[in-house]
Amino acid sequence: MERFAVFVPKLLRRQECFLPESSRSCKGCAEALAVRHVCKGLGSADVLEKGEWMIPWEQSIPDLEGSVRRRYFLPALLRIPKTGGQVLSICFDNEAGTDNRERGKWFWKKHMPAVAVADGIPYVATACPSYPFDLVAKIKEGYSFQGDAYIHLLCPCPVGWGFEPNLSVKMGKLAVESNLFPIYEVVHNRLSLSVETPRPRPVNEYFRTQGRFKDLSDTIVDEIQSMVTQEYAKLKSAVLL
């Protein structure tokens, strides 16, 4: 595969470890797509059987005022032990648990890759199933890497986000192209962007195609746009947060 400048889907390994027989996913589920490509990246079903699915985990911390509690959720996490006692953790984030509408105020979801980097994990990457070759390469790299690895996947959810099932791949692309979910990899604190967006799309395009952002006012969208531009400029100069 590495010999070609263009990625050829036909050369991806055709053996499926992902069993559609036991898949109970809704139609157009990008999480199922992500699991399928993770299986392709890991190689054999034996590796996957060693893995352990974690129950979504909730943490409540008191707000500054003391009375209101903010909740942070961890989405589904797959932990795969590697030889040598290290662990590859893969987070399937469908942005369902982020209770980001408390008291009519909006706040950002927890930046899990930055937490992982601050925790001292040597290999941290973000990926999206809309870019499958990038995802498969990162899973392979994370599994063969010497040390712990954490990979964060954005999985659009047609039911939760409120869009047509045939748009779920498109939605992931929109999130990446509008810089809301930049795809990068951090190896030993050195950050490199995997997908460059010289002319990013406006975030409005991403928000307005989803039912869950129906009540988002234009002023908030402008605010988010300026935040996203700022964050991306930081990533460009290889600084995470």
Partner: peptide, 17 residues
Amino acid sequence: TKCALCYLYCPDAALRL
């Protein structure tokens, strides 16, 4: 054109060569 893009993006692995 047999480019296999549909195979790549199918979430249910329903496309067979």
